[in-house]
Each structure stands twice: as structure tokens, then as C-alpha cells.
């Protein structure tokens, strides 16, 4: 699903965001990317989204080599990904339903199926009563749920959530993490970045990618807290 070999990312201003990253993620995995602010978590996610490209090394996501050569292929790849952005990137002036529909309109899905997917996704995130509310009238947590609904309604192979627990209190943060991890299945990989490591400390059956100053270490925890280090 994801294969990074010796990937480095240096921004135009010279900042080295990631150094020699090696990572393999299989279909159906749950991956937490942790680390303090500015450690390179978002940079890693940007690489996976095709918002940035490796300055060295090779990276492939869902079988697609992440290079600048063919932007159309990257655009096609993004249709297989369900992104939940840190700042949500919802479209103002539209309802929650319209925002969720917006993520599917160019996927060749029939209007009936789109509406069904959107409805189901909004029910799943607990917003059945706010489907027609404009997103600017929703609370922070509700808006985040709309963003999650938009990501999952597309039935993606990969869900990428950037700091979904930021700005949330402990209970709401746990609820959001539970919601996101519930979408993991044998076909769908879920990758979540967070700096709130205390929220995932007891978590098992997941891969933990720790990012520190651009370097990563990977820890895989099997079910029942069985640990193995890579």
C-alpha cells in the first residue's frame, strides 16, 4: 500500500523536513504518526497526499510512484484517498450534506448512490440531525465530523487524518479517534497524525511512527499489546 525507501524532503527554503525515511504500510493497517509540533508529521502526510514530492528516495502510495512527472496520476490517486485536513477545508456557504457530496461528485458515482453514501456517512459520524446545516454554523467538533464523513463517504482505500484531535478536549478527542479507527477494515488503511501521544498509549493492533526532527522510528503493536519493534 505504502512503500517509502530512503525518502527525504527538503523545502525550497532549505529546511530539511524528513531524512531518509523508510516505511512500509500494508492494506488494512492502522498507523499513528506521532511527534511534537514541527517534527515532520504533516510533511510526511503531505508526501502521502502528493502535496509535496520527495527530494530524494522513492515513495509509492497505492502502487503510484509519487513524482512530479504526471500530476494527473497524482490527482487520480487522490480519488482513492479520504483526507481529513487539520483545518477541515470545508466549503463555506454549503450544508454538511453538500460538503460530503462534493467529495464524490467527480468519482462517476450516480446521484442516488452519492446521496445514499453521504447520508450513511453523516449518520455514522452522528450528524443525522445536522445534515442540512451550513458548515459555518456548526461547532468545531461537528465540522470535524463533517470532514470525516466527507472522507469516508468516498469509500477510500486510505484515510489520512492530520491532527484530528487538535483543539479538542480529552473526551471529544478520544471519540474522534475511536470514530476514525472504526473505519479501518481489511481494505481500508487509516493513518492518523497526532501530537497527543497520551490518547493512544494503550492502543494495540496498530503501527506507531514516531517522528523526531525529520527522523522516524516505527513500532508495530499486535493485538493484546503484544509488541514488536522494527
Amino acid at each position: 500500500m505504502i512503500e517509502a525507501k530512503g525518502v527525504s524532503l527538503r523545502y525550497r527554503d532549505g529546511t530539511l523536513a524528513l531524512k531518509d525515511v523508510n516505511l512500509e504500510v500494508s492494506p488494512g493497517e492502522l498507523v499513528y504518526i506521532t511527534g511534537p509540533s514541527g517534527s515532520g508529521k504533516t510533511s510526511l502526510l503531505k508526501l502521502l497526499m502528493g502535496m509535496e514530492y520527495p527530494t530524494s528516495g522513492s515513495l509509492s502510495v497505492l502502487g503510484q510512484a509519487m513524482t512530479k512527472d504526471d500530476p494527473r496520476k497524482i490527482r487520480k490517486l487522490r480519488r482513492l484517498i479520504g483526507p481529513v485536513f487539520q483545518e477541515f477545508k470545508l466549503i463555506k456557504g454549503r450544508s454538511a450534506m453538500e460538503n460530503v457530496l462534493m467529495g464524490m461528485r467527480f468519482l462517476g458515482i450516480s446521484p442516488k448512490q452519492m446521496k445514499e453514501n453521504a447520508r450513511n456517512a453523516l449518520i455514522r459520524v452522528g450528524l443525522e440531525h445536522k445534515m442540512l446545516s451550513r458548515v459555518e454554523n456548526l461547532s468545531w467538533g461537528e465540522a470535524q465530523r463533517v470532514a470525516i464523513a466527507r472522507a469516508v463517504a468516498r469509500k477510500p482505500l486510505l484515510i489520512l487524518a492530520d491532527e484530528p484531535t487538535g483543539n479538542l478536549d480529552h473526551d471529544n478527542a478520544l471519540n474522534i479517534l475511536d470514530l476514525l479507527t472504526s473505519f479501518k477494515d481489511k481494505n481500508t488503511t487509516v493513518i492518523i497524525t497526532t501530537h497527543a501521544t497520551h490518547l493512544i498509549e494503550g492502543q494495540s493492533d496498530a503501527t506507531f511512527v514516531k517522528v523526531r526532527e525529520g527522523n522516524i522510528s516505527v513500532e508495530r503493536r499486535a493485538k493484546f499489546s503484544e509488541k514488536c519493534f522494527v
Binding site: R72, R75, L77, R78, P83, K89, I91, M102, F106
Partner: peptide
């Protein structure tokens, strides 16, 4: 521009 940027990140083609 914000909406366009979001649509691109979601994979919408330029024609759409």
C-alpha cells in the same frame, strides 16, 4: 480559490 484548492486535494479533475 479555497474551494478550488480543496477540490484538487480531493482529486477533482480540472475539467470538473
Amino acid at each position: 480559490r479555497d474551494q478550488i484548492n480543496t477540490l484538487r486535494l480531493l482529486g477533482a479533475p480540472n475539467s470538473f
